[in-house]
């Protein structure tokens, strides 16, 4: 069966002989987009996070065939060396990673998470379920679906806060 995905803005058609292929394995093994990582293959770590139709999901817990016609953004579509997105630059600046394996998932998750906050989505810490202020604890809670065994969490929080508060400005200063 043919599955057509729009990946990072480009239309890709996969001839899938097997419906068992997860979205994650389709990206990694069949589209050679290995930036999306496999940490557990069961939705327990977040390393495989991609953005599908504007929302972050675990690509390991989805079949590729279920995404025919969907728009998918992977880490490769967020920014490449020489043209990194503010969130990626903030992760470098704050050392929001060590081994780097969970990092693409963290960045995808953080990127979509800020969008969720902009839409006013509450979290379990948002006491009155009203629009959330992006406190450090709110960042921590909303990023808890991305495990980091090197345990860069405090730096990840710093990076996301920085990117959310205008990483662009900081980048401009860095570049200057």
């Amino acid at each position: 069966m043919d599955v057509t995905l729009t990946v990072n803005g480009a239309q890709r058609t996969l001839q899938l002989d097997d419906p068992r292929v997860s979205l994650l394995d389709a990206l990694r093994q069949r589209l050679d987009l290995t930036g999306t990582k496999k940490g557990c293959d069961h939705g327990q770590c977040g390393a495989c996070t991609v953005i599908v139709n504007g929302r972050r999901i675990n690509s390991c817990l989805s079949l590729a065939v279920m995404h025919d016609g969907d728009e998918i953004t992977t880490i490769e579509g967020i920014g490449q060396p020489g043209d990194l997105a503010p969130m990626q630059q903030a992760f470098i600046r704050h050392d929001g990673f060590q081994c780097g394996y969970c990092t693409p998932g963290q960045i995808m998750s953080a990127t979509a998470m800020l969008d969720e906050v902009r839409q006013g989505w509450p979290s379990q810490l948002s006491g009155d379920l009203g629009p959330a202020e992006l406190t450090d604890d709110e960042i921590r809670e909303r990023m808890s679906g991305n495990l980091c065994r090197c345990s860069c969490y405090p730096n990840i929080v710093d990076a996301i806060r920085d990117a959310a508060q205008g990483g662009d400005r900081a980048n401009a200063e860095d570049a200057a």
Partner: peptide, 12 residues
């Protein structure tokens, strides 16, 4: 709902 799983899982 917000006490369960993660943002990614709740999105699916």
């Amino acid at each position: 709902i917000l006490a369960g799983a993660s943002g990614q899982i709740r999105n699916r």
